[in-house]
Amino acid sequence: DLSALRVEEVQNVINAMQKILECPICLELIKEPVSTKCDHIFCKFCMLKLLNQKKGPSQCPLCKNDITKRSLQESTRFSQLVEELLKIICAFQLDTGLEYANSYNFAKKENNSPEHLKDEVSIIQSMGYRNRAKRLLQSEPENPSLQETSLSVQLSNLGTVRTLRTKQRIQPQRTSVYIELGSDSSEDTVNKATYCSVGDQELLQITPQGTRDEISLDSAKKAACEFSETDVTNTEHHQPSNNDLNTTEKRAAERHPEKYQGSSVSNLHVEPCGTNTHASSLQHENSSLLLTKDRMNVEKAEF
């Protein structure tokens, strides 16, 4: 173990290094160091905050020279020094078990990766560091076993998940096959086929009936047209017969005018059967003409 005197000496050296690497504005270890034209180094955030307070150039807090945003430059070497100082402080805390008085939040800088452990060898070769390295080497064999167990647990979990997924996939297939086998029997399929065939026959029977009705309507229309044509021909046949009657009536009127007047009046009210309204109107006109002729003949006879 380190003596108290040596611990104090190391602590004083760390404090001196820390004062050199402090920012003059925030009085902390410089984060993202930036250098000016006057070779003074500050935190990048502190300098941008200072420049944004005034429009135009501002003055350096140490030498009062003008500073602009374009004049600022990043210093990589200074950032490396800060990183190495942080590593020294971490090693000091691990070796002594004491917390550094002016320690900052170094938890963000710590890294437990194997590459980081290899890099620590180049920091300080001390008894405390050696003991700590031995402890780490002793704890390393235990870690692979834990990793193997965790991997086995994960693989077993994956296997159970896969088996569950396969079961879920197989179950719908089985149910679907069961439904297909038990849903419709052979008799049901035959009945469905016969039902479809009967429906098709009914459709075939319905369509000819409609065509037959249309044919019957067409035949009825044709018969009505033929009947009207026969009526017209009958009226045409009746007209010459009426003319013959008129000639006979004229002759009778010349011989017996008194008797014919009474008979002509009675004939006005008689309509021949089986004739249309057109034929009756023609008869009325003929009878009126005959009456006028008879009157003329009677007057001539009187004179």
Rank of each mutant, 00 (worst) to 15 (best):
D188Y: 02
S3L: 06
T68W: 07
S3P: 06
C23L: 00
A107S: 02
P114L: 07
Q18R: 03
R6Q: 13
S219N: 04
H278W: 10
K108R: 15
P144Q: 14
Y104W: 13
T36Y: 00
C60P: 03
D200Y: 06
T160N: 08
L204N: 06
N65T: 11
D188G: 11
N143S: 11
S113R: 15
L268E: 07
T149C: 06
K87G: 10
Q80Y: 05
M296S: 07
G262K: 02
K19Y: 02
L62Y: 02
T149Q: 06
T163L: 06
K54F: 06
K19S: 02
I67L: 05
E148M: 12
S264F: 06
K87E: 10
F106K: 07
G159M: 04
T207L: 07
I20S: 06
E202S: 14
F45P: 15
I215K: 06
F227D: 14
L289A: 14
Q93F: 00
A220G: 15
I25S: 01
S219M: 14
K64T: 00
Q173R: 14
R162M: 05
M296L: 11
K44P: 00
L158W: 10
P208I: 02
T149W: 03
A16Y: 00
V82P: 05
L146S: 08
H116G: 08
G210A: 09
E84V: 05
G199V: 11
D188A: 04
E258D: 03
V34A: 01
N234C: 13
E8L: 10
L62R: 00
C225L: 13
R70F: 14
T96A: 01
L268W: 10
D213S: 06
V177I: 04
S58P: 02
I25W: 00
K250T: 09
N297T: 14
S3W: 11
C90N: 15
T248D: 02
T207G: 12
E187V: 07
E84N: 05
Q261R: 06
V153Y: 14
L29K: 01
Q53N: 07
L48G: 08
D218E: 11
L151Y: 03
T149Y: 00
R132V: 05
L117I: 10
C26L: 00
R295T: 10
E28C: 01
L86F: 04
E254I: 12
L2Q: 10
K134G: 05
L2S: 14
Y195G: 03
E99R: 09
Q154A: 08
S197V: 00
N65R: 15
T230M: 12
S219F: 11
G128A: 14
E32V: 05
E214Q: 07
D231V: 03
L50I: 08
S156K: 14
T230P: 15
R6A: 05
Q93R: 06
D188S: 05
D244L: 15
L48M: 05
E258A: 14
D244E: 02
L5Q: 14
G159A: 07
N131Y: 10
Q205S: 13
A301S: 14
A133L: 08
R162C: 06
A279Y: 14
S71L: 06
D218F: 07
L21S: 03
R130M: 10
L245S: 13
L5R: 13
E202I: 06
T68A: 00
E9I: 01
L146D: 00
L27C: 01
T149K: 12
L217A: 05
L48S: 14
P61A: 00
Y104L: 04
S185F: 04
L164K: 13
F92A: 00
S150K: 07
K222L: 14
I124D: 09
T36V: 01
R162I: 00
D39P: 00
K87W: 04
P144T: 08
P257Q: 05
R174T: 11
G274H: 13
R251F: 14
D218G: 10
R162T: 08
E258Y: 09
F227I: 15
N246A: 11
T233S: 06
P272C: 09
D200R: 05
K54M: 00
V265P: 08
P24I: 00
L51Q: 02
N15H: 14
Q209P: 05
F45R: 15
N52I: 03
V270N: 15
Y260N: 02
G262Q: 04
D294P: 05
L51E: 03
C273T: 15
R251I: 10
I67D: 00
C46G: 00
G56M: 10
V34P: 00
I67K: 03
S35K: 05
E140H: 06
F303L: 15
K221T: 13
S264K: 11
R132T: 05
K118W: 05
E9Q: 02
R165M: 13
M296V: 01
Q11G: 10
E229A: 09
E229V: 11
V265S: 10
D218N: 12
S156F: 08
H284Y: 07
Q201N: 15
V10I: 07
C26Q: 00
Q125Y: 07
T247L: 07
D39L: 02
L268R: 12
G159V: 04
E120T: 09
E22S: 04
C43M: 00
N276A: 07
P57L: 07
T247V: 04
N65V: 05
V34Q: 01
T211Y: 11
I215M: 05
E22F: 01
K87C: 09
N143Q: 07
L164W: 14
S113G: 02
A101L: 04
L51H: 01
V82S: 12
E84D: 05
L51R: 01
I25N: 01
L86W: 09
V161A: 08
P33Y: 01
T166L: 01
T207S: 09
K55W: 02
A223M: 06
D188L: 02
L158N: 09
K49Q: 11
A4P: 09
G56F: 03
Y129H: 13
V161R: 08
Q201G: 12
K37C: 05
E84K: 05
Q147A: 09
R251C: 15
Q171P: 15
R295G: 09
S219E: 12
E285D: 10
V265Q: 13
D294M: 09
D200I: 04
P240V: 07
I41P: 01
S126Y: 08
V298K: 13
C225T: 02
R255C: 12
V232F: 08
H269N: 08
M127L: 13
K55G: 07
F78N: 10
I25H: 00
F78G: 11
D39F: 01
L155F: 12
S216A: 05
G56I: 04
L72N: 09
E258F: 14
I170G: 05
Q125S: 13
L155I: 09
Q53F: 07
M47K: 04
E249R: 09
Q205F: 13
G199S: 04
P257S: 07
L2F: 02
R130Y: 12
N131W: 10
L136K: 09
D66K: 15
L48R: 07
C225V: 05
V153F: 13
T233K: 09
Q147M: 08
S150I: 05
I30C: 14
L217P: 09
A279V: 10
L204Y: 09
V7K: 05
S186E: 10
R6G: 07
N267G: 14
S139R: 11
T230G: 09
S287V: 06
V34Y: 01
Q205P: 10
Y260E: 07
N267E: 04
P33E: 02
S71C: 02
S264R: 11
S266Y: 11
E142V: 08
A223T: 10
L245K: 03
L151P: 14
H269Q: 03
K259Q: 14
A91V: 00
Y260L: 05
C63R: 00
P257E: 13
V7N: 02
S266P: 02
